[in-house]
Structure formats: structure tokens, C-alpha cells
Lab assay of single mutants.
Amino acid sequence: TGEEYIAVGDFTAQQVGDLTFKKGEILLAIEKKPDGWWIAKDAKGNEGLVPRTYLEPYS
């Protein structure tokens, strides 16, 4: 299990392996990579890379 984050903006996948999401979606951070791209999972179970700058902790 990971930590929940809320998307603060829309993001469209730029390449294969990225995860597209919309502002307000809750994402589960699976792995926090030091380069600023995290592996996350959305509510539908889709998994991919997301930019850290689009996420804020969800409580």
C-alpha cells in the first residue's frame, strides 16, 4: 500500500508508461523516485509514472 495524493492539475501521458489523470483524482503513490516522477495507481487500478509536482498529500 502507498500514500494517497490528490491531483492539483490535469496531466496527459507524454509517453508510454505515464499515467493520465485529472485534477481532483486521488492517486496512490507506489514508489517515490528521486527524479520527481513517481509510480502511482488510480482508482481504476491503472498504474504508471506521474510528475510529483501535480500531487499534494490527501488527508
Rank of each mutant, 00 (worst) to 15 (best):
I6E: 04
Y58V: 11
V50Q: 01
A40K: 01
S59H: 13
W37E: 02
T1N: 12
G24Y: 05
G45R: 02
E3C: 14
L49M: 11
K22S: 08
T1H: 14
P51L: 10
E25G: 04
L49Q: 09
G48I: 03
Y5I: 01
K41R: 15
I39W: 14
A7W: 01
A43T: 12
S59L: 13
Y5P: 00
G45E: 04
E47V: 15
N46H: 09
D18N: 11
E4G: 07
S59D: 12
G45H: 04
P34D: 13
I26D: 00
T53R: 13
Y58D: 03
Q14V: 12
T53S: 15
L27D: 00
L27T: 00
E31G: 08
A29H: 02
Y54N: 06
W37P: 03
P34V: 10
E3K: 10
T1P: 12
Y5A: 00
K23T: 09
K44C: 14
G2Y: 15
V16T: 11
G9I: 14
P51H: 14
P34N: 12
T20F: 04
Y58W: 12
K33D: 06
G36N: 06
Y5R: 01
T20N: 08
P57Q: 08
K22F: 09
E25P: 01
I6L: 08
F11R: 07
L27Q: 00
L27A: 00
P34S: 13
E47W: 12
L49W: 13
W37F: 08
G48D: 01
G2W: 15
G9P: 01
P57N: 06
G48H: 02
F21C: 04
V16E: 14
G48N: 01
G17W: 06
L55T: 01
G17P: 03
D35I: 03
F21Y: 02
T53K: 14
K22Q: 08
P51M: 09
P34Q: 11
L28C: 10
N46C: 08
D10Q: 04
G24S: 04
D18F: 15
F11M: 04
L28T: 12
V16N: 10
E56W: 10
Q14C: 13
G9L: 15
Q15L: 09
W37A: 04
K22I: 07
A40V: 15
D35S: 09
I39K: 09
T12E: 11
P34I: 10
E25V: 06
E4C: 15
V50I: 05
P34F: 10
W38M: 08
G9H: 15
V50A: 08
E56V: 14
S59T: 13
I30A: 02
A40Q: 00
A40H: 01
R52K: 13
G17I: 04
G24Q: 02
I39S: 05
W37N: 06
G36Y: 05
G36Q: 05
I30V: 10
L19C: 03
D18P: 03
V50L: 03
D42V: 02
E56R: 12
P51R: 08
E25D: 15
T53P: 07
L28Y: 14
P51T: 03
L19R: 02
G9K: 15
A43N: 10
E4F: 15
E25K: 02
V16P: 15
V16H: 11
I39M: 11
E31S: 11
L49I: 09
L55I: 08
D42R: 02
V8G: 04
D42K: 02
E47K: 12
W38N: 00
E56K: 13
I6T: 05
Y5Q: 01
G48F: 04
K41G: 03
Q14M: 12
D42L: 03
A40E: 00
W37G: 03
E47P: 03
K44G: 09
T20Y: 04
V16L: 11
A13W: 04
T53W: 15
L49D: 04
P51D: 12
F11G: 01
E47A: 10
V8I: 15
G24E: 02
G9N: 14
D10N: 10
F21M: 05
I6D: 00
A40T: 04
K33M: 10
Q15P: 02
W37T: 06
G9E: 15
N46K: 09
L55M: 06
G9S: 15
P51I: 05
I26V: 09
W38I: 07
P57T: 07
W38Q: 01
I26E: 01
G45P: 00
I39H: 09
T53D: 15
Q14T: 13
F11Q: 02
D10K: 03
D35Y: 07
G48M: 02
L55W: 01
D18A: 13
D18E: 15
K44A: 13
T1V: 14
F21K: 00
K41W: 05
K41D: 00
T1M: 13
Q14W: 11
F11L: 04
I30N: 02
G36E: 05
K23I: 08
A7G: 04
Y54R: 08
G24D: 05
Q15K: 15
P34G: 11
L55G: 00
I6F: 06
K32D: 03
V8P: 01
Y54F: 12
F21T: 01
P57G: 05
K33Y: 11
Y54C: 14
I39G: 02
P57D: 05
G36C: 07
K22V: 08
K23N: 05
E25C: 07
I39F: 11
K22A: 08
P34H: 10
G24L: 03
Q15A: 12
Q14S: 11
G9A: 15
V8F: 04
K33H: 12
W38R: 00
T1E: 13
E47N: 07
N46R: 10
L49F: 14
E56C: 14
L27S: 00
G2M: 13
K23C: 11
E4L: 15
D42C: 03
F21I: 10
D10L: 02
S59Y: 13
T1D: 12
D18K: 12
E56N: 07
P57C: 08
T20I: 03
L55N: 01
I39L: 14
E25M: 09
Y58L: 11
Y54H: 14
K22E: 06
K33S: 10
G9Y: 15
F11D: 00
R52Y: 14
N46Y: 08
A13L: 04
L55P: 02
G24C: 08
K23A: 09
A43Q: 12
D42F: 02
K32M: 09
D35F: 06
T1I: 14
R52F: 13
D18L: 14
G36W: 04
Q14E: 10
A29I: 15
G17R: 06
T1G: 13
Q14P: 05
W38A: 02
L27H: 00
L49S: 10
G2T: 11
I26Q: 03
G2D: 10
G48Q: 01
K33W: 08
G24W: 06
V8W: 05
A13Q: 05
T20C: 07
E47C: 14
E31C: 14
G24H: 05
L49K: 13
P51C: 14
V16I: 12
F11E: 00
R52T: 09
D18W: 15
V50D: 02
D18Q: 15
A7I: 02
Y5V: 03
I30S: 03
A29Y: 04
P51Y: 13
I30K: 06
P57Y: 08
G48W: 03
D18G: 15
Q14H: 10
L55R: 00
D42W: 02
D42Q: 02
G17E: 05
L49Y: 14
G9D: 14
A43Y: 09
K32L: 07
I30C: 06
P57K: 11
T20E: 07
W38D: 00
W38V: 06
D35N: 13
G17V: 04
D10C: 09
Y58G: 05
I39E: 02
K32N: 03
A43L: 11
A40M: 15
I26P: 02
W38K: 00
I26K: 07
G48R: 01
G17H: 06
K33Q: 09
K23Y: 07
E31N: 11
L55E: 02
L49A: 09
A7Y: 02
T12Q: 11
I30L: 12
L28I: 15
I39V: 13
D42G: 03
V50T: 03
E4M: 15
T1K: 13
E25A: 12
K32P: 05
F11K: 03
L19M: 06
D35V: 03
L27M: 07
F21D: 00
E4A: 14
G48A: 02
F11N: 02
